[in-house]
Write a protein that binds this DNA or RNA. Structure first.
Lengths: 145, 145
DNA sequence: CTGAATATTTCATGTTGTCAAGTAACCGGG
DNA sequence: CCCGGTTACTTGACAACATGAAATATTCAG
């Protein structure tokens, strides 16, 4: 622990990761803003474009209160990007699902996210594989995932 | 660009980085919350603990409007963590500087940020050096920085 | 000295976030 | 069947964060 604070290598890596995080958010918000969406709205729309899901689960994914999701989905619904459907299996549940327009917007969003291109383009395939392995180990992800 | 969307290796790396970003923010907010600070407040306090600076510059660092910074510094000032000082060189400018209590809080915050320890501890020194080099190249940072 | 530019604040407004309370629906044991 | 506990979602009140426009004070160039 004393090591952690004083080790310059670790400090630099942490700082670099901080820079990556900042750039990631910056690009994400920019891409969202280009569609007049906030970051939170873009994130929810992205989630739903993979698979419609109950409000509850959106809150779990976003790590926030369900009441918060109500508002975000409200705004997406007002803009015609998302709709609420009843869950045939449980009438308490409302499934949020993207409309066609929502799916299209989500696709454009994904494509305009230059993060995947810009910084990673500077690395060779081998480099990327090494980076992947390091990140996996760092995050404790098993290779199968 | 078609490459970017279809290359599974790149996609996985982007996803891993997304996970890193999420975990980074999660830990940051947790550490801040432990001191009853919001993420934004902790970030500003961290900035100022390195060096007092004008409101304007805080806004530039945070990439937000100066009027926003007014509120955040207001709240930090109310809690006695930060104070506004006149800039002797320019009477328009107000320098935000941490109080002793603020410096102490910032130090505790830095130390409680386990991100540096937890995930990176899983890597050897050699691994960390490789990771550092990859991130540097990815971000286009010159080694001297 | 005058007028443009800069630093900060204030105000109005909208989004995100929490928490507590309310409504509707499920589900188990009697 | 029905009753109590749980779950899903919404609503309302409130704080923080974010933007933009307008106001104030100061600097600076001409």
């Amino acid at each position: 622990m004393a090591t952690t604070r004083t080790d310059p290598l670790t400090l630099e890596v942490v700082e670099l990761i901080g820079t990556v995080v900042a750039r990631y958010y910056e690009e994400y918000d920019q891409a969202a803003a280009a569609h007049s969406l906030t970051g939170a709205q873009a994130r929810v729309l992205g989630l739903l474009s993979l698979e419609p899901m109950p409000m509850r689960r959106i809150a779990q994914k976003l790590k926030c209160e369900p009441s918060n999701v109500t508002g975000i989905v409200d705004r997406l619904e007002t803009r015609g990007l998302v709709e609420r459907r009843p869950d045939p299996a449980d009438r308490r549940v409302k499934l949020a699902a993207p409309t066609e327009k929502g799916i299209d917007t989500a696709r454009q969003l994904r494509e305009s996210l230059s993060f995947a291109r810009e910084p990673l383009a500077k690395l060779s395939d081998t480099d990327r594989a090494v980076l992947r392995d390091l990140l996996r180990r760092m995050l404790g992800v098993d290779a199968g995932s």
